[in-house]
Amino acid sequence: MAVPDAGTAAADRAGAPARRVARRPGRAFSVTRLPGFGLVAVTVFVLLYAPIATLIVYSFNDAPTISVWGGFSLRWYADAWANQQVKDAALRSLLIASFAAAISTTVATMAALGTTRRGRFPGQTFIYVMINQPLMVPEIVTAVALLIFFAAIKVATGYQGLGYLILAHSAFCVPFAYLPIRARLESMDLSLETAAADLYATPWQTFRRVTLPLMAPGIAAGAMLAFVISLDDVIITEFVKSAGQDTLPTYMLGKLRRAITPEVNAISTALLGLTVLLLTAFFLLTRKRG
């Protein structure tokens, strides 16, 4: 008798009707659950936002140091607003970001039209690599390279203006503008343009009346990303700027190296608000596609 008396065991079980009716749902087996993963994920989200939340809260702190809470106040926003240096830096940041977004989006749109939806052609990989180069080369290396290059030009021409910053920002914003535009183009239905051509539209009319309106959300998304990226840049700006050309981030970097006042919190919060606003718009723009 190698097999135990399975018959009686089964009969016993059969005799007692199954009573396991209500089971706690938490005990149920779930294929996709991995132990501890949910806990880590929630912790990550909390840790991700806690420092930012602290920063925002303390920007409304009335006390002059960041370690004690002295009640709600907008004084640091008022201070920042009254500070001519901050105002200049903010305007400079917006000016550079606007130019950089406009220039990079224009060239990125053209490049996207040139590199998508036309099959492979010789040199395409080279173009891809060139366009994505700012994503691959460490920013500090590009910053150093531009410092050397522009220093030589400054000596040669004597020009000290914002042109250098606009040129540098436009260049490193190109891949950020290019990627959403290209994604949009690739998801577009080619037959729409064929249909337009079939309805007697010239290539230019087809582009103006069909292609461009369809890719507009991609272009807007690309421009927004480029704007945000330019607005946030620290390293390249720090190396390229001439004296008195601080942007908001380099102004803050200078401040952070010395004594920190809650004024920096206020500026950070304002900049954060602007970024989140633009990103939300970007999110909504790209989501509509689905």
């Binding site: 079980r13 396991r20 149920a28």
Partner: peptide
């Protein structure tokens, strides 16, 4: 065993496996 029953039991070879993972 990829899903758990809301009520009732599953037996395999006479053994109640309702609470056992796959």
């Amino acid at each position: 065993g990829f899903e758990s029953p809301t009520a009732g039991a599953i037996l395999i070879g006479g053994r109640d496996v309702t609470a056992e993972p796959p």
